[in-house]
Design a protein around this nucleic acid. Structure first.
Lengths: 354, 354
DNA sequence: TTGTAGGCGTTATCAG
DNA sequence: CTGATAACGCCTACAA
C-alpha cells in the first residue's frame, strides 16, 4: 500500500508536469469504478478483483494522482506524519539522527515534522501541543527534558518513541544508548594506556546520559583501584565553550593530570583548543578522549579518540520502532553497543611515539 | 450515528486515544454563537462585535481549542506550514539555516516541513511533489540543483523563496549571498599578508556558488597582478575528505605554495588534517582560509580564518520573505554582505610570530 | 454584524 | 466483492 503512494509521486515527478488537483473521484471515474474501490486499493483495506485493480492502477499512473494527506487525515484519522521533538536541529549530533529518521520514514510514506525543544521542558511541552494539533500519527522524542510522567501521559494519546532513557509504558517505546558502558570504555582506554590522573568534563547534569557517563568514569577508576578525585571532575554543558572553560579551570586549579575524558565530542573540541592555547600538545602532553564520534571528530587535529554513538542508526531505529508501534506491533529494536574508536588524540603515557 | 459528539468519541475510542478533540462547533456552542462567527474571529475574516468576540475567546481558552490544520487545509484555507527543501539536514551549514527558518516561522504560527534533496535534482523534484501533496503554503528551497525553470514553474502554483541564486519571477523571491565578494575578500586577505602562491580548493562545480567563489579568487589575483596558475587550483566537493585529498594531490604535484584558500570550511578542515599529516604547520608553514564560518571554525586548531556566511540570518530572512510573499507583500530582504573573519590559521608570510 | 448551507477529498459504514 | 452515503472539522459564499 505504501509503496504505491511513493511510486505514484515518483511517476508524477518524473513527468515533471505542474500540479493539478487530481482527485480520487477523478481516478474512479477514469477507471470506471466507485471511489470506495479506489480507496480500498490505495489502502489495501479489502480484496478487489484483479481486473478493477489494474484499471485503477493505470488510471492513477495516467493521471498522476497523489492522495491528499489533508483529506486523508480528516477522514481517516491519520496524517502519515510523525512528529519529532529534537533539542536543536542544528546540533551536529541531532542532525545526523534526524537524517536517520527521515530515511527510515520515507519508504513507508511518512514524513517527519521536526520541532525544536531547545533543552527546555516547557518548550518541549509546547512542541508536543503543536504536533498534536497537527494530528501527527506519533511522536519521537529525541532525548529531552520532559518528565517520564509527561511522556507516559502523552503515550496514552498516541504512540511515542523516546531515546535517551529507559522507560516502560503502554504505547511507549524507549531506545536507550548505554552511556554507562561508553563512559566505562573511554576511561578504561585511558587507564590501559597508563594514565592514572584522568580529568573528566561532565555533561549537563540535567541530562540523564551525562550522569551515566560519569558513573562509567567512576566505575572504571574503581575497577583499576584509582582513587576518585572530585577536583578532577569539572562541570561542562555539552558544548564547545564549556569544554574550553573546563580546561581553563582545571589548569588554573593546578591539578595534575595526564588525560582528559570529555563527556561529549563538542566539549572535547573546546578542551583541545584550550590546551592548544596553553601550549599543551595533544596527545604528547595530554591525552584526550571524547564521546559521540561526531563526523567532525575524524577531522579534528589530531583526530579524536572517542566513543562511537550511532546517531544515524538510532534515528533509523526510532523511526522503525514508531512504524511498528503504529502497525500495532511490538518494537524490539536494540541500540548497538558503545564502541571505542581509538584515534590519535590518546596515547600511552610517557611514550614519545604513538 | 446520532450526533457529532457521540460519533467523535466513538472514533477516538476505536483508535484508543484519550485526547479529546475540541472542535470549532463545540466552541461555538459554548459561546452561544454560530460556527462561522468563531471562524471569523479565528481568521480575522470579518468584524465581529466585541461582546461575542470575548465570549468566543473565553470559550476557546476554556476548552483549550486548537483548530485542526487538516480540516483547515481541506476547506481551502492555509495549512500554516511551509515546505523547506534542504540538501542535507545533517550538514553543519544547513542545520543552522534551518534553525533560523524555524525561529522566524514560529511566531507567525507557521511550521516548517523539512525534506532533504541530497544534492540530487530528481530527489528535489520529488521533495517538491511531497510538499505540494501536503498542501504547504509555500516552499523555501535552500540552494539546490533544480533548474531555474523548474523553480519558476513551481512558483506559478505557490510562493517560492530560493537561496543561493539570483532569479526573478512572479511569486518567486531569491536571496543570494555574494559569493564572489566572499572569494575576493578571502584571497585579498592572504595577498595582504604577503602570500603570492595561493592554492585554491574549489567547491563542487555543479553549485553556482562554487564558481562565484572561484571568480572571486581569480579576480583578487588579477587585481594584485599575480598570475593565475591552473596547477594551484584543485577540485573539491565541499566536504572534508575532498579537502584532504585536494591537499594530498597538491603536495604530490610539488607545486610551491604558502597559503590555501578552501571554498568552504569543511574542506578547510580536511585540508588542515592533510597538512598536519604531512607535518606542515598551520599557519607557520601554510596559511589557511575557509569559507562559511561554521560554528566549529571557531574551535578548529588553530581557529580558522574564514568568510562569514550568515546561515542563521539567511534562514530567517528566507522565512520572513516567505511570510511576506504569502501576505501578498513584496519581500525586500537583503543578505548581509560577506565579511572576513581573521583568526589564527592565516598569518603574514615569513613572520615568526602572529 | 451574524447565521445557514454546501463543499473540500478521503475513509468508514453500511447495504446489496 | 462493490457501491452509495454519511461523516471528518473547517471555511466561504450567500442570505438575513
Amino acid at each position: 500500500m505504501k509503496n504505491k503512494i511513493v511510486a505514484a509521486s515518483g511517476v508524477k515527478a518524473a513527468s515533471g508536469r505542474s500540479y493539478a488537483p487530481v482527485t480520487l473521484d477523478m481516478v474512479a471515474a477514469a477507471a470506471g469504478v466507485s471511489p470506495s474501490t479506489v480507496s480500498r486499493i490505495l489502502n489495501g483495506t479489502a480484496v478487489v478483483s484483479a481486473l478493477k485493480k489494474k484499471a485503477v492502477d493505470d488510471a492513477i499512473a495516467e493521471l498522476g494522482f497523489v492522495p491528499n494527506p489533508m483529506a486523508r487525515g480528516l477522514a481517516g484519522g491519520r496524517t502519515l506524519s510523525i512528529g519529532v521533538v529534537t533539542q536543536a536541529i542544528d546540533s551536529p549530533f541531532y542532525g545526523v539522527a534526524l537524517s536517520g529518521i527521515e530515511d527510515a520514514l520515507d519508504p513507508a510514506g511518512y514524513s517527519p515534522l521536526f520541532v525544536s525543544g531547545q533543552w527546555n521542558a516547557s518548550a518541549e511541552a509546547r512542541c508536543i501541543e503543536v504536533l498534536r494539533s497537527r494530528r501527527v500519527d506519533g511522536i519521537i522524542v529525541l532525548t529531552g527534558r520532559l518528565s517520564d510522567q509527561a511522556l507516559k501521559t502523552c503515550a496514552k494519546a498516541l504512540p511515542v518513541v523516546v531515546t535517551g532513557r529507559s522507560l516502560k509504558a503502554p504505547g511507549l517505546f524507549a531506545l536507550n544508548f548505554d552511556n554507562f558502558t561508553g563512559g566505562l570504555l573511554a576511561t578504561q582506554h585511558l587507564i590501559t594506556l597508563g594514565h592514572r590522573r584522568i580529568a573528566f568534563i561532565t555533561g549537563d547534569p540535567a541530562h540523564p546520559d551525562a550522569n551515566d557517563r560519569l558513573r562509567g568514569y567512576r566505575t572504571a577508576l574503581e575497577q583499576a583501584d584509582i582513587p576518585f578525585e572530585a577536583a578532577l571532575v569539572v562541570p561542562g554543558e555539552y558544548h564547545e565553550v564549556s569544554g574550553q572553560q573546563a580546561v581553563d579551570r582545571l589548569l588554573a586549579s593546578h591539578q595534575q593530570f595526564t588525560a582528559i575524558f570529555a563527556a561529549n565530542d563538542q566539549m572535547a573540541f573546546g578542551a583541545a583548543l584550550a590546551l592548544h592555547r596553553h601550549s599543551l600538545r595533544v596527545p604528547e602532553d595530554i591525552s584526550l578522549v571524547g564521546f559521540d564520534d561526531l563526523p567532525s571528530a575524524l577531522y579534528a587535529i589530531p583526530p579524536l579518540s572517542t566513543i562511537h554513538h550511532p546517531a544515524y542508526e538510532l534515528g533509523q531505529l526510532a523511526a522503525r520502532a514508531m512504524l511498528q508501534l503504529i502497525a500495532g506491533e511490538k518494537p524490539t529494536a536494540e541500540v548497538p553497543a558503545p564502541r571505542l574508536v581509538a584515534r590519535q588524540s590518546s596515547r600511552r603515557l610517557g611514550s614519545a611515539a604513538p
